[in-house]
Design a protein around this nucleic acid. Structure first.
Lengths: 235, 235
DNA sequence: GATCGTCTGGGCGCTAGCGTACAGAAGTCC
DNA sequence: GGACTTCTGTACGCTAGCGCCCAGACGATC
């Protein structure tokens, strides 16, 4: 039943490049497999590689005072990790760890910078993506301020689902709590509510979306706003 | 007593350019006076001009569903309005209105884009500023999520004070409430507390900082983090 | 001087989420 | 099979901020 796997293992940023440029760029990439929980960047550390997820996805978080964190962005096949290089910054501003295991394309930072300098469609495309990221950052700020936990949780699950190229993915209540900046107990309560309504099903960290439409109805508008921003700028 | 006015009426982004380039750039700018409340950009509208505040400062807000807003960034002589042009986006993502009246340097968008294409120190400098803005956006998101209103208010007042080139500035409780995404009454309570501690003094929308040190002690760490980020990247 | 709009203060009940603590259930490892 | 860790559920008191309302105070305007 390959109908459940319509996901082409490509990265949309790269796929949007015109043919010859794309081939040249891909030749400089290495296909790697990212393991769940793998740390790809830490704040202040030099960026050695950039990543273009194909099947995998990565969560970007801030570090706060202490061990507390807050999830800011998710990066899947629609984006890339290491974008700050196009602003001339060779150190990572955020913490990045693998949320969904799978394949990604990896390129050395220096080579990526050279590719940027060559011009062509690449820098244009990545500037657009950076713009989208800023919009999402702003949207997430608003969301964290105003929206109820259950809606924010639904939004996060939908964003993850969009980037996870499988039916479910792995994420514990504890981890979700850190992403959304709330207590674990709060997630348990909100997730239970979603589960009771048959929108999701989870079991020891494995989450599966059962009713995507229902979940979208439960999520705040930020989810759709993010998607429409991406579509408007990138497509 | 000119001791109270040590503020050089320049913009720091422009001041950082090397001599010949700076002169050329300034020749393309027009010095304008911005009035309190003037709207300089609306989301989705074309960017006709970019602004480099010298004495004035501008607040950037998101539009939410309905009339609600949330303040995201303040732009004074340390920054500029219209930076998204360097990402190739010619429409404003945010709402921008003049918070502190005064002078600014203005340039037509098309001319600004041409100046960017000439290379030199300008694009480098502005990319750095964009990076700083992203950091501040992320920090504000964290701040809105975790910090108490009084600390956030203190932070906002300090940020405004840094950009206002005078002893006080004009901002009502109502407006602060929109900036910080809370009720007006919440601001009244927090501001009263600050006033009782002799940190600020306000009267019908005119705010004056009395004890900057004390206010910094009341503010959350986000204020210092913002400043140190700017210093680290820009200086 | 009277009127009106703007700005600030305070009260009252409510709720989302906090901090903390404990317990059971499901896997894992030996 | 038993010990241990991880994950989830529940409970209890607490508080920051909400929504709403009204009252007073100041300043401008005519």
């Amino acid at each position: 039943m390959p109908a459940t796997k319509p996901a082409p293992a490509v990265n949309r940023l790269i796929a949007a490049l015109p043919h010859p440029e794309r081939q040249r760029f891909l030749a400089g990439c290495k296909r790697v497999t990212l393991a769940f929980g793998e740390i790809l960047a830490e704040p202040g550390a030099p960026i050695t590689h950039v990543y273009f997820p194909t099947e995998s996805f990565i969560s970007l978080t801030t570090t706060m005072n202490g061990p507390a964190r807050l999830g800011l962005l998710l990066v899947g096949d629609e984006g890339m990790l290491g974008i700050s290089l196009i602003l001339g910054q060779d150190r990572s501003p955020l913490h990045a760890s693998v949320q969904g295991p799978g394949q990604a394309l990896r390129m050395e930072a220096a080579q990526f910078c050279r590719a940027l300098e060559c011009g062509g469609a690449l820098p244009t495309q990545l500037k657009r993506y950076l713009y989208v990221m800023m919009g999402q950052l702003a949207q997430t700020g608003v969301c964290n301020r105003f929206h109820l936990l259950e809606a924010r949780l639904a939004r996060w699950l939908l964003m993850a689902q969009d980037r996870a190229h499988r039916d479910g993915f792995h994420v514990t209540h504890e981890y979700l709590a850190r992403m959304l900046g709330v207590r674990r107990v709060g997630i348990t309560k909100a997730a239970s509510a979603l589960q009771h309504r048959k929108l999701i099903r989870y079991h020891r960290g494995d989450v599966r979306i059962l009713d995507r439409g229902g979940l979208e109805a439960s999520a705040c508008s930020c989810f759709q706003l993010d998607k429409s921003l991406y579509a408007r700028i990138m497509d």
